[in-house]
């Protein structure tokens, strides 16, 4: 009866970057005002035949202590920043990367720049953005973080995790620019993360249980028993 999650995906990032909005857009297909998340929110998403648990965490420093608990044995971590705030990208490295230590070893990382709709060069595609001049004057909201910054961060994360770049998915595939408001790229983000994470889980399951007790592992077995859908 109780659906047990197969995969754990965690959204991390500074406050006000739009983690809750992203998830809301993906789950409920709508964008609405949210208030600052308290602690962490747990969602269960039925994706194909899998139950994917998604932790939407609070970006506030206040709840920093819980971060490692949310990340424990996570299969994928979506690091979110705000394209109009350089600081939010730096925070990812300074504050949130350390939390991912408790994640599962072969954890996938995605780096997501949200609020792309706010930037003035939104109508065009992301590819062109790298060529734009870096320094922005004070027009409306200028983009402060470019995709290549995110790619650089991704590579640093891989280094931090001591993962061989050749084994990890290509940085270009794991960096996204999204808009929870318009829905731009949101589905692409979640679908591709899920697409990549599921094979890993299936492979792991085939390899048999590990010596460490894994919550998602345990639940996977249960799931096959109930076999709903």
């Amino acid at each position: 009866m109780i659906k047990k999650p197969d995969v754990k995906v965690v959204l991390l990032g500074d406050m006000n970057v739009g983690k809750t909005s992203l998830l809301h857009r993906y789950m409920d297909r709508k964008f609405q005002d949210t208030v600052s998340t308290v602690g962490g929110a747990f969602y269960l998403k039925q994706w194909r035949s899998y139950n994917i648990s998604i932790w939407d965490t609070a970006g506030r420093e206040q709840f920093h202590g819980l971060g490692s608990m949310y990340c424990r044995s996570a299969s994928a971590i979506i690091l979110t920043y705000d394209v109009s705030s350089k600081q939010s990208l730096m925070e990812l490295e300074d504050r949130f990367l350390g939390l991912t230590d408790t994640a599962s070893e072969d954890c996938l990382f995605a780096v997501v720049g949200n609020k792309i709709d706010l930037t003035d060069d939104y109508e065009g595609e992301e590819e062109s953005e790298g060529e734009r001049p870096r320094t922005c004057s004070t027009s409306k909201v200028r983009k402060q973080v470019y995709l290549e910054d995110a790619i650089a961060l991704y590579k640093r994360i891989m280094k931090y995790k001591m993962v061989d770049e050749n084994h990890a998915p290509a940085a270009e595939k794991m960096c996204f620019e999204t808009s929870a408001k318009t829905g731009h790229n949101v589905d692409v983000l979640f679908e591709s993360v899920f697409n990549m994470v599921i094979p890993l889980i299936v492979k792991k399951k085939a390899n048999g249980p590990e010596d460490t007790i894994n919550l998602s592992q345990e639940s996977t077995e249960k799931h096959t028993k109930t076999g709903c859908c």
Binding site: M27, T34, V35, S36, G39, G40, A41, A58, G65, L66
Partner: peptide, 14 residues
């Protein structure tokens, strides 16, 4: 009451 974010999913907070 002040946290509409609670209305979806399950919250775990200190």
């Amino acid at each position: 009451g002040a946290s509409s974010a609670f209305q979806a999913g399950e919250i775990w907070t200190p």
